[in-house]
């Protein structure tokens, strides 16, 4: 059992790398997407909403295959890891933008109105008054999405990224002990996801204290 663990374990490095980079890109890219879907320009709003609906209507695996197997046809040949990061970044940007949008909608209109009335500009209102409150509201669902992304990163094994699931699969085919292997890999996924959940709860309670919102 320990032997199998030492063989699969190192795959965790790529799983964590893939998840964290995609998550970071997604979290930042989601901001312009959110702003576009909330824009007062009809065209921009339409493009934003269209993008969100389009990306979400197609399974992640299909996007992954379009990027990895499809793009070389247009002269672009990303490595498996780059293809996986690119795909997961865009997909998470779209899903996170929906979470951000919900977070902004959850903030009372009065917050905008009051800060505008006090003479704050649109940018300052967004970044200093509403932004921090949105941050607190969206943190739990964003953390949940992060754990979901960790699980989605397993898809990268299908295009040959040597991460946890890939290693588990090779080990299964080598030893035939699929049950043992999958239980071990399952435990590793849970162990990676656990700190994420704990940290988010910790940060959430600290933000709660800081902004004293209930």
């Amino acid at each position: 059992m320990w032997h199998i663990f030492t063989i699969i374990g190192p795959g965790a490095a790529n799983t964590v790398l893939l998840t964290s980079i995609s998550f970071a890109f997604g979290a930042v890219l989601a901001i312009p997407v959110t702003l576009a879907t909330r824009s007062s320009f009809l065209l921009l709003r339409g493009v934003g909403r269209g993008l969100v609906e389009f990306v979400r209507s197609i399974p992640v695996l299909v996007w992954l295959f379009i990027v990895f197997f499809g793009l070389p046809q247009e002269g672009l040949s990303p490595s498996p890891l780059v293809a996986a990061i690119a795909t997961l970044s865009v997909v998470s940007a779209v899903y996170l933008s929906e979470i951000y949008r919900g977070g902004i909608a959850a903030i009372d209109r009065g917050q905008w109105e009051a800060s505008r009335a006090l003479g704050f500009g649109r940018l300052d209102t967004g970044s200093r008054i509403v932004g921090p409150q949105v941050l607190r509201v969206v943190l739990p669902p964003v953390a949940t999405y992060g754990i979901g992304l960790l699980k989605d990163s397993a898809l990268a094994s299908t295009i040959g990224v040597v991460e946890l699931t890939y290693r588990a699969n090779t080990e299964t085919q080598l030893t035939g002990k699929g049950l043992t292997v999958d239980i071990i890999v399952g435990i590793i996924y849970l162990l990676i996801g656990l700190p994420l959940a704990v940290i988010s709860r910790h940060v959430d309670s600290r933000l709660r204290a800081k902004f004293s919102l209930t």
């Binding site: 699931t165 299964t172 699929g178």
Partner: peptide, 10 residues
Amino acid sequence: GLPLLVLLYL
């Protein structure tokens, strides 16, 4: 808790 892919393999 497990990726669906791992569940399938399992």
